[in-house]
C-alpha cells in the first residue's frame, strides 16, 4: 500500500516521503531534515528549499503545539460525510513548523480558542489508514 494510507482519506499514492508511514505505524511523528544544511521540514519534504539538496534524514517530532485557528465542518466532501460534524485545526509546533490536522473529538469544542495548548498524536483509522490529530 502506498501513501494513500495517510490521512482519513488519502488522495496521493506516490511520494518520496513515504517513510512517514513507517514512523506513524510505530506511534511516532517524524519530520525531514536536510543532511547538508540541517533545515527541518514538517510536513516532511524530500527536497531542501535552501540548498536544493535532496538527501534528507528523518527526525522524530515533538507534538507539543499551540492552536492558531479551527473550524467545525458540517458540510463535507462525500467520503467524509458519515463523520460530520468534525473539527479541523491549524497549530504551531514547538519546533516552529505549522501543522494542519483534525482535532480529536475528545477535545471539548467549547474550550477551543487560538493559543490553546494541544498535542499532535498519531491516530489510526478503521481502514488501516494512519494520520495524526490534535488532542
Amino acid at each position: 500500500m502506498g501513501f494513500e494510507k495517510f490521512g482519513r482519506f488519502g488522495y496521493v499514492s506516490q511520494t518520496k516521503v513515504n517513510p512517514l508511514l513507517s514512523y506513524l505505524e510505530k506511534g511516532k511523528i517524524a519530520a525531514t531534515r536536510c543532511k547538508k544544511c540541517g533545515r527541518k521540514y514538517f510536513p516532511p519534504r524530500a527536497d531542501c528549499l535552501d540548498c536544493r539538496h535532496s538527501i534528507i534524514e528523518w527526525v522524530v517530532l515533538d507534538g507539543k503545539s499551540n492552536l492558531i485557528t479551527f473550524t467545525q465542518v458540517f458540510f463535507a466532501p462525500p467520503v467524509f460525510q458519515p463523520e460530520t460534524p468534525y473539527l479541523l485545526g491549524l497549530a504551531e509546533l514547538v519546533s516552529g513548523s505549522r501543522v494542519f490536522a483534525p482535532i480529536s473529538p475528545t477535545v471539548d469544542k467549547e474550550q477551543l480558542k487560538p493559543g490553546l495548548e494541544l498535542n499532535l498524536k498519531v491516530a489510526k483509522g478503521s481502514r488501516d489508514n494512519l494520520y495524526y490529530w490534535l488532542e
Binding site: 488519502g10 511520494t15 473550524t71 465542518v73 463535507a76 466532501p77 467520503v79 479541523l88 491549524l90 494542519f100
Partner: peptide, 30 residues
C-alpha cells in the same frame, strides 16, 4: 463536493476532509 474536497493541498490537508468554506471559516475564527 468531491472537487471541493480537493481544493486544498491534496497531500497534507485534503486527506482530513477540508472544504473551500472550511479554509475561510478558519480565517473567520482567527
Amino acid at each position: 463536493q468531491e472537487l471541493m474536497g480537493r481544493a486544498g493541498d491534496v497531500m497534507w490537508e485534503s486527506p482530513f476532509g477540508t472544504t473551500m468554506p472550511a479554509y475561510y471559516a478558519m480565517y473567520a475564527t482567527a
